[in-house]
């Protein structure tokens, strides 16, 4: 039929793989929303499984060493100077690690998205490594290194938790941060932003700090919080290398003050990190056009 004539195959350029987000959202919402039985079931089960032990722990933490109930264990946390010192050490490590991680990851992600999208898959593969490489093996290697290092290196690096641990925590935190920041960068129209900023005469540096960073700040915050969580939680390497960090001290504090304090501290620390992430999810959701509160 001539009406349909010539050049049918003249193909349109490929479409981007990403469907416009608003459409998705609308369609998903358009399913009739009945509170389905299977959803309710799994939420109840999940709640029991995940909240139950925390409640049990809370009850446990209320038992004082005298056998009575009370909040005394929580009071003791504040007074315990060893715990406080360990917490400061860990916070210091966390802060430095977080800064280093963001400085390393953000430009890398931007660069890869703009210049070398082919590397994305490779990087995603690499970012899995630290999840699966046993930290205990890493720690063993470090101990070996320490044993064979010249004295000046030992006193320079290994003698302090700060210098001894930070580099490795950076490594451990890289993959999670990469995922978090990459999720954020994927959600913005990076190319247009960069081109616009360039055409207005910004340098690469100010493009990064003034244009991209504000647009992915939630993702960056997510990366920071996860890094902090990781540093506050990592115990294997620190333990083997005999550094006294917060989680190591939590384990040890039990031997000194009884398990009540120990459990009290762990509950508080869990709540603290949960609070960080939960608050962040509101920041993320408030942003215009945000379709997902997913951080990671």
């Amino acid at each position: 039929m001539s009406a349909t004539g010539g050049n049918l195959g003249l193909a349109a350029r490929g479409l981007g793989a990403i469907e416009p987000a608003p459409d998705r959202k609308k369609r998903r919402a358009s399913r009739r929303r009945r509170p389905r039985l299977w959803r309710v079931t799994i939420f109840v089960l999940a709640a029991i499984y995940f909240i139950g032990p925390q409640l049990a722990a809370f009850k446990f933490s209320l038992v004082l060493s005298s056998g009575k109930y009370g909040l005394g264990n929580y009071g003791q946390i504040v007074q315990n100077s060893a715990l406080r010192d360990a917490l400061f050490t860990s916070l210091e490590i966390s802060a430095i690690t977080a800064v280093v991680v963001v400085v390393l990851v953000l430009p890398t992600v931007v660069w890869i998205r703009l210049r070398a999208p082919k590397l994305t898959l490779l990087l995603e593969g690499i970012t899995i490594l630290p999840i699966v490489i046993p930290p205990v093996v890493l720690a063993a290697g470090l101990e070996q290194l320490e044993g064979h290092s010249p004295q000046w290196l030992v006193s320079l690096v290994f003698n302090h938790a700060l210098t001894g641990l930070t580099p490795f925590y950076v490594i451990l935190a890289l993959p999670f941060s990469y995922r978090a920041i990459d999720t954020g960068v994927r959600a913005i129209d990076l190319r247009t932003l960069v081109d616009a900023s360039r055409s207005l005469g910004s340098s690469s540096f100010s493009t990064l700090t003034r244009v991209i960073l504000p647009n992915v700040q939630t993702a960056v915050l997510g990366a920071v919080f996860l890094t902090v969580a990781l540093c506050l939680g990592e115990v294997v390497i620190a333990n083997i290398l005999l550094y006294v960090t917060f989680p190591v001290e939590i384990i040890q504090v039990g031997q000194e003050t009884g398990p009540g304090v120990q459990v009290a501290v762990s509950i508080l620390s869990l709540l603290f990190v949960f609070g960080l992430l939960f608050a962040l999810s509101f920041l993320a959701g408030r942003k215009r056009g945000a379709t997902s509160t997913r951080l990671i």
Partner: peptide, 27 residues
């Protein structure tokens, strides 16, 4: 629900090694 689950997942998956052990002992 989505916010709580996603934040809780982050905490439990990346942070909770030691504290959750205590929670289990308590349970």
């Amino acid at each position: 629900v989505q916010r709580v689950v996603s934040s809780a997942s982050g905490v439990l998956a990346y942070f909770a090694g030691v504290p959750l052990a205590f929670a289990w002992i308590a349970t």
